[in-house]
């Protein structure tokens, strides 16, 4: 195991982490402010990717495609909030899970009906293609560096939005006391739609960014959704800061964990044996991390005490 490999995996972990953050931010906001479990968040990720692929194929512009992913996912989010989700705020979590699960099926089959079952083509633009040589001589894909940059910028923007703006004040107030903020005359239903649309737009952006290096296909959102839930549980439900730290932790664990574990086991076990044990544990690492965090801090790293 070389130092170079560790360095590359750290970058991979950060890149994966900021992607998860884009997903988890919306999820945790929606849960924190409205108390809603939204399983259909992965579908918004898929919608973003499909919107980007469709626009990129029609116009050839990657920036327009990213804009479309934000716009279409936000619109889809707002529409779903207005038509379905709104009716679920006062219901219990089981009803919310059922209804949003139904939304997953509707979105998946709807997308299949519109775009067909075969994966769509979405490629990164020429100016982001290829690898750059980092200090130390490591070659690293330019596009992944760009994703890290975009993710960090979004995190800063989100922090400013929540900490410094009026809508941010309302979101924080909504997290603390839903009834009170409504009683003070804030139009709570508009606030909810806005929060839902912001979360949806971020998920859509994540889908488009990732879709360009993975495959744009029906059902692409669900595996990410599971990890996003792990992230918000680790970070503490409702906390954007928690989601950011949690996402980076999960990303680094996922990418670094297996090689470090293998190196550790190889120091005292036969190579073949070390490999099979490392492989077995590497897929569990994230969940072990989650379990440890929950034992030490039952409401997550930055969660409110319950």
């Amino acid at each position: 195991m070389s130092l170079m490999l560790v360095f590359e995996q750290i970058l991979n972990g950060i890149q994966f982490g900021v992607m998860l953050f884009l997903m988890a931010a919306g999820l945790t906001l929606v849960f924190g402010v409205m108390g809603l479990i939204n399983l259909a968040h992965g579908s918004l990720y898929m919608i973003g990717a499909f919107a980007a692929a469709a626009v990129a194929n029609a116009t050839g512009s990657f920036l327009l495609a990213l804009a479309a992913s934000l716009g279409v996912a936000a619109a889809a989010g707002a529409l779903v909030e207005f038509l379905v989700i709104r009716r679920l705020y006062n219901r219990d979590h089981l009803d919310q899970v059922l209804a949003t699960f139904a939304l997953i099926l509707i979105f998946s089959e709807g997308t299949r009906w519109l775009f067909g079952s075969f994966p769509l083509y979405l490629d990164i633009p020429d100016y982001l293609k290829g690898a750059v040589i980092l200090p130390g001589g490591l070659q690293y894909p330019l596009y992944r560096l760009t994703i890290i940059l975009i993710g960090l910028l979004v995190a800063i923007a989100l922090y400013l939005l929540i900490a410094k703006t009026k809508i941010g004040v309302r979101i924080r107030a909504g997290e603390n006391d839903r009834e009170m903020i409504a009683a003070l005359g804030v139009d709570i239903s508009k606030l909810y739609t806005a929060v839902f649309a912001i979360g949806a737009a971020l998920a859509g952006l994540a889908g488009a960014l990732v879709g360009a290096v993975q495959s744009v296909q029906v059902g692409m959102g669900e595996p990410v959704l599971i990890l996003a839930f792990v992230v918000i549980v680790i970070g503490g439900i409702g906390s954007i800061k928690g989601a950011f730290i949690g996402a980076l932790l999960v990303g680094l664990t996922e990418k670094l964990g297996s090689i470090l574990l293998l190196a550790l086991l190889s120091s005292f076990l036969e190579p073949a044996q070390a490999k099979s044990i490392a492989m077995m544990f590497s897929s569990m690492l994230i969940y072990i991390l989650m379990a440890v965090v929950l034992v030490v801090k039952p409401s997550g790293l930055y969660g409110r005490r319950v």
């Binding site: 293609k129 070659q139 993975q214």
Partner: peptide
């Protein structure tokens, strides 16, 4: 897609 941009 990822391999193509990895520099490998």
């Amino acid at each position: 897609k990822q391999y193509a941009n990895s520099g490998l």
